[in-house]
């Protein structure tokens, strides 16, 4: 990666970590569009708990603890895991560069 490309990548990652680990604490907790519509149309009672509801990171908190640290850690974990998963899949399926001078 070029130097400018690396800078862009690092700034982007930092931004994602700050958003998920810090800004998300201030997110609106009102029902989202689908939840709102489900209440209005009368089918919200059919929502079931996910099979993963006992996950230590369920609801974007660590062990369900509602504080800034717990939410921040959950957000950072999510960014890192998503980056690892999507990053490795896209890296594996990419076109390998054929020109010998590129690396």
């Amino acid at each position: 990666m070029s130097r400018r490309g690396r800078t862009l990548w690092l700034v982007g990652l930092l931004l994602a970590l700050v958003v998920a680990g810090g800004v998300s604490w201030y997110a609106s907790s009102s029902p989202d569009g689908l939840e709102h519509a489900a209440e209005q149309a009368g089918f919200s009672h059919r929502a079931e708990d996910s099979a993963t509801a006992d996950s230590p990171f369920a609801d974007y908190l660590v062990d369900g603890e509602e504080n800034r640290l717990s939410a921040g850690v959950a957000g950072v974990v999510g960014v890192v895991v998503t980056l690892g998963l999507a990053g490795s899949v896209t890296w594996v399926v990419r076109r390998r560069s054929t020109s010998s001078g590129r690396r």
Partner: peptide
């Protein structure tokens, strides 16, 4: 490819 992984992480955030 590196931008793709980062974009996914950014969308998660």
């Amino acid at each position: 490819a590196p931008l793709a992984g980062l974009t996914a992480a950014f969308v998660f955030a």
